[in-house]
Design a protein around this nucleic acid. Structure first.
Lengths: 212, 212
DNA sequence: AATTCCAGAGAACAGTTGTTAACTGCATGG
DNA sequence: CCATGCAGTTAACAACTGTTCTCTGGAATT
């Protein structure tokens, strides 16, 4: 579908990606609202004015980062809350998937956790929209389960939001474990896994007895 | 207990509080990591250098704000998860308490939600510590309930953390409803109340069937 | 081969930032 | 009453910020 783009466009996208990468790295130690455009271009090695060829402002760049961090994550949702296997196995699989994702893309996870309630409105909205999409997808996945018989649409969405929040909370905990000193890492990761497993299990129990 | 402090100390505390108030107001539209010390002193109407008489840095001020926002909240915990009344009534009371608190101190709630995963490490740690204290208090309150018979200490703390996270999430939703346009406020507040009620109810169900 | 386009460079702008030093005036304790 | 302490002021600093305008070299188009 995408015909090979010329040298021109390719080089442009390359610098654009370099700007996004540099920004993401800088955002490990600060918030988006304090990220300066000069700071980003300096890290990439281009002139400050080059920034404007790609983004209107750092807030604009932030919205693009939301897309990069969450946009490609939708296919994963289906497998995370898939219907196959017994409940206990499903919980273990979901948490393992979260742990792996945090391991693979820690900066993305940190960015989302930080800017979800951060100081830049357009970015907050972009994250909220993406998470709402996740909740919708989780909802349609939940609806497939026989346990969902007799559930109202509202209740399904309510539970979906609870799951999405729980996933984010767990991801954030895994990230904190990852940031700590090397020697504590294994212990803390295990601890988070156990905590998250039991919380998910408890929510699952509430789900089973919802219609009593 | 506190003997009346002299004119000198009183005036100092007054400016200190003015700095905290001004900072909190400025933080409604940005994050702490982008808050400048000059910005704060300008808003108060004092010289920039006066700032140093009270705080080493804006990060230091942030830690003081955490104390102000959460420190005085501990007595409320007991009533929020109190043991009296039937489960449904307790849920309603807890959510009503949260809604009232968000109404009374919206800036404090926003600050905590924003800086919990924000870009300033000492502030993150201060919030984490306070929330851990909350969890401990919720845990001892949960332990009083007959339903908690046979629960391990770990499981009690696991549930306590789940409740604390849920409270924060709910508070944040109430805040969003409060920030929206006047005409939507009532509707959105009601919607959040219903959502939070059902989520708490579901967690309560999981709690009841935990030992099956 | 000649022309247009455009990503990035360069220089300059007014305004901002945190931090230092030396000061002033007034409440405080001897 | 007088000497000390200290909250807040004033002035100055080098460094930094976002944004504008002008320019350039090479890819893209004709």
């Amino acid at each position: 579908m995408s015909h090979t783009l010329g040298i021109r466009q390719a080089q442009k996208q390359k610098t654009r990606q370099a700007l996004l990468d540099a920004a993401l790295a800088l955002l490990e130690e600060q918030s988006l609202s304090s990220l300066g455009l000069r700071e980003v271009t300096r890290a990439v090695g281009v002139a400050p004015t080059a920034f404007y060829r790609h983004f209107r402002s750092t807030a604009d760049l932030g919205v693009a980062l939301v897309e990069e961090a969450l946009g490609s994550l939708h296919p994963m949702i289906r497998t995370t809350v898939s219907t196959t296997g017994d409940p206990e196995e499903r919980v273990a699989r979901a948490i393992d998937l979260i742990a792996r994702h945090v391991d693979g893309y820690p900066a993305h996870v940190r960015f989302i956790a930080r800017e979800r309630h951060g100081g830049v409105q357009p970015v907050r909205e972009a994250i909220r929209d993406q998470l709402a999409r996740f909740a919708q997808e989780v909802k349609t996945e939940l609806a497939k389960d026989p346990v969902a018989r007799g559930w109202s649409e509202d209740d399904l969405l309510m539970l979906a939001h609870l799951y999405v929040d729980q996933m984010l909370s767990t991801a954030s905990l895994f990230l904190e474990a990852l940031e700590g000193p090397e020697e504590e890492r294994a212990d803390r990761t295990l601890h988070v896994t156990q905590l998250a497993t039991r919380q998910m299990r408890l929510i699952g129990l509430g789900r089973q007895h919802w219609l009593d």
